[in-house]
Amino acid sequence: MNNSQLLKGVLEGCVLIVISDDEVYGYELVQKLNKLGFTNLIGGTVYPLLQKLEKRGDLTSQLKPSSEGPSRKYYSLTPQGKKQMDEFINQWHSLELVVNQIISKKDDQND
């Protein structure tokens, strides 16, 4: 998958969903997203996104001691972020419906 505008918005929503499960630090988040199917996703895409979401107030971060070396920055969802996430899920469902309808209509015509 390439780095298109469409993907960026979707990725933002997915990040919120993944973080809503449990607080994560950067590398952990990238790995989780990789495993979930964003196989080509790199860290470089995630940091500016996390920074943006934190600035906007959707995420909050906390330093927590780690087993090795200095404390790590863990991100968790704020109530505002939770609202954003719910909104994203709703929008996704209605968009999915519309897009699927358009695609199946096109397929019908081709048949």
């Binding site: 630090y25 950067g26 590398y27 860290g43 940091y47 790590r72 920055k73």
Partner: peptide, 14 residues
């Protein structure tokens, strides 16, 4: 600095 350290810790993990 906190952003730089965060990236460094993650690169080390990688």
């Amino acid at each position: 600095e906190s952003s730089l350290l965060e990236i460094l810790q993650d690169i080390l993990d990688a």
